[in-house]
Write a protein that binds this DNA or RNA. Structure first.
Length: 459
RNA sequence: GUGGAUGUAGCUCAGUUGGUUAGAGCGCCGGAUUGUGAUUCCGGAGGUCGCCGGUUCAAGCCCGGUCUUCCACCCCA
């Protein structure tokens, strides 16, 4: 036990049973992505460090996994930095980090996507719709539903300002959760509305602080939110001005009326509200989802500029969001390509997994597992079973022959453990009569049939 | 990154104020049943008590460090 191998903090192995369930989620999401015209893209696990730093805010930079340079790190170090280290003098952590590491694991899929778009701008036809299902890494401290390696399933459309994209993404979200049979609520807001609120409060420069505080409303309550705003240097009158935000209940048309009265004079708010109304008006019926305007929805990432989305499960006990996204007007600007508006969403496969498992929503038949096991009675019988095995496989049915002629109990237990529904038995008697005995594991029923009738029983 | 818990068999957990040989259930292996799993009965294997160090005549138990998992912040999928 002392030498039991293990894996790094916050990472996980996925057993075959878990992988079948995970693939079910990925396949479902991928199928819907394709149905909406998104095409697949993959980018490397590693990006250049400079591509990632500064894109996720100060907090985000800290959570980027850096990859140590290969080769002679010491020999190739900047002489100035080297001299300081030799003298035992302090070197700025960022400066030292840049010397030791030039690449890092991707933190999300959106920034690498932006990098890709800029790098390949001449080959891409816009609007460009891509989906991407890959792991991302964050050097965060792990908790429940929070890992250091986890999968994101992103769909973005870049190069179009049309609100039809927002509408389609909402319907796409609805489609995914209908397919997964999970009841969700899709919350929407618009950054412009939040900015307008900051404007009328008289402290527009405090948008980010206001927004991150407001975002916590459902978790900590109005009082604590106001406390945090005070701590961030937001004035009492400003806090009082914001207060109506917390009383915006009702349907969207009702909320819109209140908002018009409150923020109507601010052009930015007009724009945001008009956009929201367009989305609410155009979205078709959703099967397993309700669409709600949530004025306190903010989302942390700085690059969102328009609509923002967040999806929460109505079932199970998952406090965090299982899907999120929004519009960004200038994501590619930082890489030198201006005026490229995009909008995208990201499904958190790992959290969706946890919810589906907790609520027992995974289909019982997940496929991928063998349908029939041929028992092995010895060389002669096995050779005969091998022939039947091929015809079963040719019919497209997953089948296997137990490789060793061990006792029956062990072979049946193998079938039981692996959830194989049928066991085909060809022993001495069956061989002589040209028949095969088929046992259905669930009922325990067993019958002898002619070889040619085998397929109709197990399919 | 800050603060707090946790770790004993493959899994879930007992283990008294520190005292000799660390237990249970489930699982695993073998047998009852040489052609039948899940059920029943009988038997068996498996632990340097997360790791390193300290206190003590004596440590699973006390102390320090470290790692893991979990919780609350921060932030987020």
């Amino acid at each position: 036990m002392a030498n039991m191998p293990s894996i790094p903090k916050g990472t996980r192995d996925f057993s075959p049973a878990e992988m079948l369930r995970r693939k079910y989620i990925f396949n479902t999401i991928e199928r819907v992505f394709q149905k909406y015209g998104f095409l697949p893209l993959e980018t490397p696990a590693m990006e250049k460090l400079e591509t990632l730093t500064g894109k996720y805010g100060e907090e985000g930079d800290r959570l980027i996994f850096k990859v140590l340079n290969n080769g002679d790190v010491w020999g190739t170090m900047d002489p100035e930095v080297k001299a300081k280290l030799v003298k035992g003098e302090e070197v700025h952590p960022g400066r030292l980090g840049a010397e030791l590491s030039g690449k890092a694991l991707r933190y999300d899929l959106t920034v690498p996507f932006a990098r890709y778009v800029v790098q390949h701008r001449n080959e891409i036809t816009f609007p460009f719709k891509r989906y991407q299902i890959q792991p991302v890494w964050r050097a965060d401290r792990p908790q429940k539903g929070r890992y250091r390696e986890f999968y994101q399933c992103d769909a973005d459309v870049i190069g179009s300002k049309s609100l039809l994209n927002e509408v389609e993404l909402v319907e796409l979200i609805g489609d995914v959760f209908a397919a997964l049979d999970l009841q969700v609520v899709i919350k929407v807001n618009d950054r412009k509305v939040l900015s307008a609120i900051a404007e009328i409060s008289g402290q527009p420069e405090k948008v980010v602080d206001m927004v991150t505080a407001i975002d916590k409303l459902d978790k900590i309550g109005q009082e604590k939110v106001e406390e945090e705003m005070r701590a961030k240097g937001i004035s009492e009158p400003a806090i009082a001005t914001i207060a109506p935000l917390f009383r915006l209940s009702g349907t969207w048309p009702e909320q819109r009326k209140k908002l018009d009265k409150w923020l109507g004079g601010v052009p930015l708010a007009q724009e945001g509200l008009k956009n929201l109304s367009t989305v609410f008006g155009a979205v078709g019926p959703l099967k397993n989802a309700t669409l709600e305007f949530d004025p306190t929805l903010a989302r942390g990432l700085d690059y969102y500029t328009g609509a923002i989305f967040e999806v929460k499960s109505q079932e199970g006990n998952m406090p965090g969001s299982i899907c999120g996204g929004g519009r960004y007007d200038d994501l590619t600007g930082i890489f030198g390509l201006k005026d490229m508006s995009g909008v995208g969403i990201s499904f958190g496969a790992d959290r969706i997994y946890d919810v589906l498992l907790e609520t027992n929503k995974f289909p019982t038949e997940l496929g991928g597992s063998t349908r029939v096991l041929f028992a092995n009675f010895g060389e002669k019988e096995a050779m005969y079973a091998l022939k039947l095995l091929r015809t079963v496989r040719e019919a497209g049915i997953a089948a296997e022959l137990y490789p060793d002629a061990v006792k029956m109990a062990k072979q049946f237990k193998y079938a039981d453990d692996k959830g194989i529904p049928f066991v085909a038995i060809i022993g001495e008697n069956e061989l002589k009569q040209g028949i095969v005995t088929v046992k259905e594991m669930k009922s325990g029923e067993q019958k002898a049939v002619k070889e040619e009738d085998l397929l109709s029983i197990i399919s």
